[in-house]
Computed example of a mutant assay.
Amino acid sequence: MATNAILAETIATIEEIAGDELATLTIERVVMGLFFSGVKLSSGHAGACATPLKTIPEAVCCPSSAFAMPFPGKMRGRPAADLLKEAQHPNGLRRAVGIAAMNALASHCWGRRPHPDVVEEANIDAFDAANIRPGQLVVVVGAFAPFLRELRKRGQPFFVLEQDPETLKPEEMPFYRPAEEAPVIVPQADVLLVTGTTLINDTLEGILAAARPDCCKVVVGPTVGLVPDAFLRRGCSVLGGIRITEADEFLDVLAEGGSGYHFFGKSAHKIVLRTCRPGEMRGEAA
């Protein structure tokens, strides 16, 4: 598997911001849930990543799974820097845990150095932050049910690119386009809403590159962390992620098969990182 440039750049930024402190941070807890995986650091910060079960044949075979995840029972106390390297592992399960560790470290780094060109807004949905105007063509990458429902309600023109059409409802199928058509569909977008899980399957780079320069690019989901530098370089103006406020409670929910419906507003809340508007200072939310 080729190096994922967005992940590589994010890791490098984390290493730069954390500096020597990175060597002192260890893993306190790791959970691989049905929908999301999560990591808690010795600093108390936590991060998450979607668990890519559908794309992992090893998940159905115990011997293969043992090979895929060689560290169960041995992660507590390991250097966080070691798990950070897993974010670029070719195996999906290991990559998910690595990205969760990366996002936990990103949360730690945001406290040390918020990005000067970005505003953080709490309890706002990335869909709303995109400020979609009537008539704009929206391309959704991934079956975001709430997004699709709102777009249909508005009568907004849109397409949804999805690898698995079975995740869509019958009324959503007229808007469906196979993921393979991304090179044709994405350049048409006025607004591009992309699932953060594209970081796991290495498709995000190509999707963002295919969008027009004037397109509003939005990447959203718990897989998106709080170090926006690599996304900004690729023209993203809105990142929708989460801030985990109660790490252990959050991981308990993941361990019991929970999803966003179970942790939002309780152990975590939605946040948006967006580029500053002209004349706006970081930390000022309109």
Rank of each mutant, 00 (worst) to 15 (best):
A2V: 13
T3R: 15
L7M: 06
E16C: 07
D20C: 07
L22E: 01
E28S: 10
V31S: 06
S37L: 02
G38Y: 05
V39Y: 01
L41P: 13
L41Q: 01
T51I: 03
L53E: 03
K54R: 10
I56G: 11
P57V: 00
P57W: 06
S64K: 11
A66H: 07
A68M: 14
M75T: 13
R76F: 05
G77E: 13
P79G: 14
P79W: 15
A80R: 12
A80S: 02
K85T: 11
P90R: 13
N91K: 08
L93N: 11
R94Q: 15
A96D: 10
A106D: 00
S107W: 01
R113K: 12
R113S: 14
H115D: 06
A122P: 00
I124S: 01
D125F: 15
A126E: 12
A130E: 04
I132W: 05
G135P: 10
V140R: 00
V140S: 13
A143N: 12
F144W: 06
A145C: 10
P146Y: 14
F147A: 09
L148E: 03
R149C: 06
L151T: 09
R152A: 05
R152L: 09
K153I: 02
G155Q: 07
F158D: 03
F158I: 10
F159H: 02
E162S: 08
D164I: 13
D164L: 15
P165G: 06
P165A: 13
P170Y: 00
M173R: 01
A179Y: 05
A182D: 01
V184Q: 03
I185G: 02
L193M: 15
T195L: 08
T198Q: 13
T198R: 03
L199M: 08
D202A: 07
T203L: 10
E205T: 08
I207L: 14
V220S: 09
P222W: 04
P222D: 15
V224H: 08
G225E: 06
G225K: 05
L226S: 04
V227K: 00
D229C: 04
A230D: 02
A230N: 04
R233T: 07
R234P: 00
C236V: 11
S237R: 15
S237C: 08
V238R: 04
V238K: 04
I242S: 00
I242V: 13
I244P: 00
E246L: 14
D248A: 12
E249G: 13
E249Q: 11
E256Y: 06
G258E: 02
Y261I: 15
Y261S: 15
I271Q: 00
L273C: 12
T275G: 02
C276G: 00
R277F: 08
R277N: 05
P278N: 05
G279N: 07
